[in-house]
């Protein structure tokens, strides 16, 4: 957490979430708090409930039980996991209309320059590539400097330069007092330094200090991978992914033990 910033922006207490009375619980008894200036990396395997937790934190989806409380006037900049674009609307018009809702239409061009997508502002949203559309969604979320940014896979689909720009931009926002909660499943790329790491496993939340990327990923020779996997599982580690590398090695990403 950045020094001198401890105001709770959003707090979840005993939050459970399911999408219908007959559906399984996606989140169970989650307690979480995000304070101003904090950067939180949300981690966990696919289907563990990360996107649902982000929607609850953003105030988009109400908890089925428990409560989510936000500080008065806490505006949220939110980027969902996969957003389809409004059909046929030029990107610039879309962003200015969005930013206009919070009086930040003038920020669109500078943010687009920063994320290297200003040339696409006149293009229709539905003609943009996945990465460029992602950048537009990020500009929409960042406009007006909201106190809380909730970003679901913000780096997904971005090129290396844009990843660097975004990591820098989010770091600056955090330094200026905005809280950033983000999920990130990449196998490398630009890194946004987090103050906390929240691990979501089977709907529950474990709050841990951040761990360097190199400690989460282990590379072993392919012939030793089965034994290593068995050892990790026996030691209580949560295996997030297993990836065969071109070098003949296998990379095992582990979650929390």
């Amino acid at each position: 957490m950045r020094p001198g910033t401890s105001e709770a922006l959003v707090r979840c207490a005993g939050v459970g979430k399911r999408y219908g009375p007959a559906r399984p619980w996606v989140l169970r008894d989650v307690d979480a708090e995000v304070t101003a200036g904090q950067v939180v990396h949300l981690d966990g395997p696919n289907g563990s409930g990360k996107s649902t937790l982000l929607r609850v934190l953003a105030g988009v989806s109400p908890p089925s039980r428990g409560e989510r409380r936000a500080a008065g006037g806490c505006r949220v900049g939110f980027v969902p996991e996969a957003g389809k674009a409004p059909r046929s609307m030029p990107a610039g018009r879309y962003l200015r209309a969005h930013a206009g809702m919070v009086g930040a239409a003038a920020e669109v061009e500078p943010l687009a320059e920063r994320l290297r997508c200003a040339a696409f502002l006149s293009e229709p949203m539905d003609s943009l590539s996945k990465g460029t559309l992602r950048k537009m969604m990020l500009i929409g979320a960042l406009g007006g400097a909201p106190p809380l940014l909730v970003l679901d896979e913000p780096f997904g689909g971005l090129d290396a330069e844009a990843q660097e720009s975004l990591a820098g931009l989010l770091g600056e926002r955090a330094a200026a007092g905005s809280a950033v909660v983000f999920s990130d499943h990449r196998e490398g790329g630009a890194h946004l330094a987090a103050d906390r790491r929240w691990l979501v496993v089977e709907g529950g939340l474990v709050d841990r200090p951040p761990r360097p990327v190199e400690q989460r990923r282990r590379r072993v020779a392919a012939e030793e991978s089965d034994a290593e996997l068995a050892r990790l599982l026996a030691a209580g580690h949560h295996v997030l992914s297993v990836r065969t590398l071109g070098s003949g090695e296998v990379e095992i990403e582990v979650g929390e033990e």
Binding site: G59, R75, F78, P80, G83, K84, A85, P86, V102, M137
Partner: peptide, 17 residues
């Protein structure tokens, strides 16, 4: 029905439900 779910959620986050 015009707004896609993601777009709708972005607006809810900005404006509140």
């Amino acid at each position: 029905d015009t707004s896609e779910p993601g777009e709708r959620q972005v607006m809810i986050a900005v404006l509140g439900p």
